[in-house]
Amino acid sequence: MTIAPDDVQPAVRWYQAMREAVHALDDTVPGKFEITKEGIVHDMMAPSSPHELTALRLRKRLEKVMPEELAAHTGAPDVEDESQGILRLPDIMLIAEADMEGQGSFDPRTLIAAVEIVSRSNPDNDWVGKMRDYPLLGIPVYAVFDPRTGTGAVLSDIHPTAAGPRYATRKDFVYGEDVTIGEWTVSTEGLPLYA
């Protein structure tokens, strides 16, 4: 579900209202809320076991090959760019521990990469919305894992387009292959599929 902004309101006022709505709903309504250029995105389903197991296995595999000062972080807080009017919560964020210090949202420009496991209930959020939003936020690498199909893609090389910044390079993969995210290569062997 997407709630569209009223075009009459200034962008900043609209974004602040959306952020207040998201924070008010977070503790009372199941699911996950994010803010995009189009409005609030609500993934109504709680993550399934295959989704969470994929995140866990990828996090562990990435942390084995990354330097100790970096983390494959799952969970809060979100990443936010108020000037763009975007608030997102990646499933896994590759980030330096030093950039996790402080209060509030992470600065998206400190992320090395964002990793998403496609939601069964709202796949366009990962394949369309985040593919548009992450280059706007300056996240240099975006990796998508799709348990519906056992496939995925790693996107990189942000470049300007008429529609705004976009990823110029896309490397598709099939589960079972090794995949490189940023500088680190991990196996996709044994990642679960949705039933």
Rank of each mutant, 00 (worst) to 15 (best):
I3D: 10
P10V: 08
M18S: 13
L25S: 12
P30C: 03
K32R: 15
K37Q: 08
D43Q: 06
S48Q: 07
S49G: 13
E52D: 13
L53P: 00
K60R: 15
V65S: 13
V65E: 05
E68H: 11
A71K: 07
T74H: 06
G75W: 07
V79I: 15
E80T: 09
D81L: 11
G85S: 09
I86S: 03
R88A: 13
R88M: 11
D91A: 05
D91P: 04
D91H: 01
M93R: 14
A98E: 10
D99N: 08
S105P: 08
S105E: 06
D107M: 03
P108F: 05
R109V: 14
R120W: 00
R120S: 10
S121Q: 03
D124F: 08
N125C: 00
V128F: 10
K130Y: 03
R132G: 00
D133T: 02
L136Q: 15
L137W: 09
I139P: 08
V141P: 00
Y142H: 05
V144N: 04
V144P: 06
D146T: 08
P147G: 12
G150H: 05
A153P: 06
L155C: 15
L155Q: 12
T161D: 14
A162R: 14
A162W: 01
A163F: 11
P165S: 02
A168G: 12
R170Y: 05
R170I: 09
R170N: 09
D172C: 02
F173G: 07
V179L: 11
T185W: 06
S187P: 10
S187V: 01
E189G: 01
L193H: 15
